[in-house]
Structures are given as structure tokens and as C-alpha cells.
């Protein structure tokens, strides 16, 4: 029951956050696109690691994801700190 109650919260938070980024970078679609690419690379690496059952180290660590997003979101401290709330082990 706890998981069912928490999942929509995380989902809504993610929707709001993606929306906020889209709006913030409306005039700079490349930044938004790069952000999506970082997320997809991270997800792909996580999936590879999971499928390899511990025999594969993801090429993109959480720290690297954070660093890449920090470079992308420079001068947008609020977006970056909110991103930190999603990232495991940040």
C-alpha cells in the first residue's frame, strides 16, 4: 500500500519538473534536448548493468549525471537542486 501511495507523488513531481524545464528553456530547445539525452543515457546504462547482473559497471555514474546536468543548467540553481532530489546517491 505504501508503494501505491508514493508512486503518484513521484510521478507528479517528475511531470511538474519536466514541465518546468520545458518552460524555462522554451527559447533554447537544445538545452532541453541535451537534458533528455543525459537521462536516456543514464537509463540505458542502468538497464545494461541490471541485465549483466553485476558484471557491468555503468559508464555514467550518478555523480557524472549530476555534473553534466550542472553544466547544462548553469545559472539555474533551482532546477539543479531539484534535480538532485531525483538522483539516487546524490
Amino acid at each position: 500500500p505504501t508503494m501505491q501511495n508514493n508512486q503518484p507523488v513521484e510521478f507528479n513531481h517528475a511531470i511538474n519538473y519536466v514541465n518546468k524545464i520545458k518552460n524555462r528553456f522554451q527559447g533554447q530547445p537544445d538545452i532541453y534536448k541535451s537534458f533528455l539525452e543525459i537521462l536516456h543515457t543514464y537509463q540505458k546504462e542502468q538497464r545494461n548493468a541490471k541485465e549483466a547482473g553485476g558484471n557491468y559497471t555503468p559508464a555514467l555514474t550518478e555523480q557524472e549525471v549530476y555534473a553534466q546536468v550542472a553544466r547544462l543548467f548553469k545559472n539555474q540553481e533551482d532546477l539543479l537542486s531539484e534535480f538532485g532530489q531525483f538522483l539516487p546517491d546524490a
Partner: peptide, 26 residues
């Protein structure tokens, strides 16, 4: 507005699964 493309939706999916993982490991 919530005018989401499939790419947006997958970003939402990745972010929410990251948040779940974060909660599971804390």
C-alpha cells in the same frame, strides 16, 4: 500546459524511476 511528447513522457518515466530507486536505497 501539459503538452507532452513521447520524449517528454520517457523523461518523466526516467525521473520517477530514479526517485523510486532513491527512496528504496535510503
Amino acid at each position: 500546459s501539459y503538452d507532452f511528447t513521447p520524449m517528454d513522457s520517457s523523461a518523466v518515466y526516467v525521473l520517477s524511476s530514479m526517485a523510486r530507486q532513491r527512496r528504496a536505497s535510503s
